[in-house]
Design a protein around this nucleic acid. Structure first.
Lengths: 222, 222
DNA sequence: GTGGTTGGCTTACATTGTAACCTACAGATT
DNA sequence: AATCTGTAGGTTACAATGTAAGCCAACCAC
């Protein structure tokens, strides 16, 4: 089981980075509920308890992988004007969060910002301030934009019938059987959505984002 | 241990409603992680396994209490114009979700809409359609508004230092020690926030909500 | 060398969700 | 009334989880 060519019997030593990297891989491939200490140990070819020599507990691992994910989000480019900067970081955030679909659910519980989250937050606020927003307006804008991004990803995830087979069955059943008469507007919209599978979400995201950006521009120094 | 005065030895029988009600109480009072089948049984003066005569599994309970919470959200009043209707249901949603702070974290994982969620969704869409939105525009508006609401509550929760003691310590420490020079914009904003404890969130919520509503009005039949 | 630190292993335990089975009583049937 | 049957509860048991405690071998500075 030698990993390094250099010393034949020696495997590459553990480290918190290696642990986090492996934890992230498991969460991405098998879901957050599959991320157990024992499985993480197996992945790293090590006993579960050995992990505790490098991390305090599982929560620290969870905090760590969330911060890694946040670190993948593209920072708003320093030179660009605030609107395009926000557009870029927003679509990057949506992309990143959607590709680690478990991450959104953790943002809520994990309170303290990791280093990447601080960097990200600071950069976003900086971009807004440079664009002419007062501290207070920048706070409002930041909260508004991030609320939209997070909330959108949540909904995008929870409506994702199309990948899951049984949920498709269930939702189709529910929508067909009962709601046609009981919930006419829901049925109408669902019927409209059937034709357009996923393109709609990207459109919707851009629609909302543009609406918010235009609104912010109008209120920028109100 | 008789509960009913009528028959002295007989306790009030279990039912899925009673179980859900008790589960909701536990989650509210002690947090979602305190909601275990054994504790739920204890609360109802019953063995844990007896619960399974009324619910299929724990997930069904979780789905159930989420739907109860959604049911607490005030539906958009049918008569009112769409803007005030949206304003009312949005602030009700924020209030309800904030008072069951565990609920937001579950919206993401639980895919299928429960009956209350369907009623709610249908009513919101109906209100928008009645206000002159096309099916497509109503879908956009719905997604935008709900994204904002959910995302806002998430951030409101995760920034809630003030109740938790240790998180206050931590965040203050982090913000003071390292970030003053490394993250100047973050520090600046944090300093600004120190003076205003919670009033700011209500203001911010209204600001964003108004901005979105105005934007939607402009795009209503674009 | 030697003594200490360190990174891994082993064992163990409390807590979780839940499967399988048992029991006693409420009503229906005879 | 006597019997049957379904059901709401209890009991036991098990596998999986996070993690505390202690052990040991290999490396390090001296």
């Amino acid at each position: 089981m030698a990993r390094e060519a250099g010393s034949p019997q020696r495997r590459t030593p553990l480290s918190s980075e290696r642990i986090l990297r492996a934890a992230l891989a498991i969460a991405d491939e098998a879901g957050l509920e599959a991320l157990t200490m024992r499985r993480l140990g197996r992945q790293l070819d090590v006993e579960a308890m050995s992990l505790y020599k490098h991390v305090a507990n599982k929560d620290e691992i969870l905090d760590g992988i969330v911060d890694i994910v946040v670190g993948e989000i593209q920072l708003p480019p320093a030179g660009a004007d605030w609107k395009t900067a926000m557009r870029m970081r927003a679509s990057s955030a949506r992309e990143v969060l959607a590709s680690h679909s478990w991450a959104i659910g953790m943002m809520e519980s994990r309170a303290a910002l990791g280093p990447a989250a601080m960097r990200y937050t600071d950069a976003v606020i900086g971009s807004l301030r440079a664009g002419g927003f007062s501290v207070e307006k920048a706070a409002h804008a930041f909260l508004l934009l991030d609320s939209y991004i997070y909330g959108f990803v949540i909904q995008e995830m929870s409506f994702s019938f199309g990948t899951s087979d049984e949920s498709a069955d269930r939702s189709e059943g529910v929508l067909e059987a009962s709601s046609a008469d009981q919930f006419p507007h829901l049925a109408e919209m669902a019927a409209d959505h059937v034709a357009t599978p996923e393109r709609t979400y990207a459109d919707s995201f851009d629609f909302g984002l543009n609406l918010i950006l235009e609104g912010l521009e109008a209120h920028r120094d109100g």
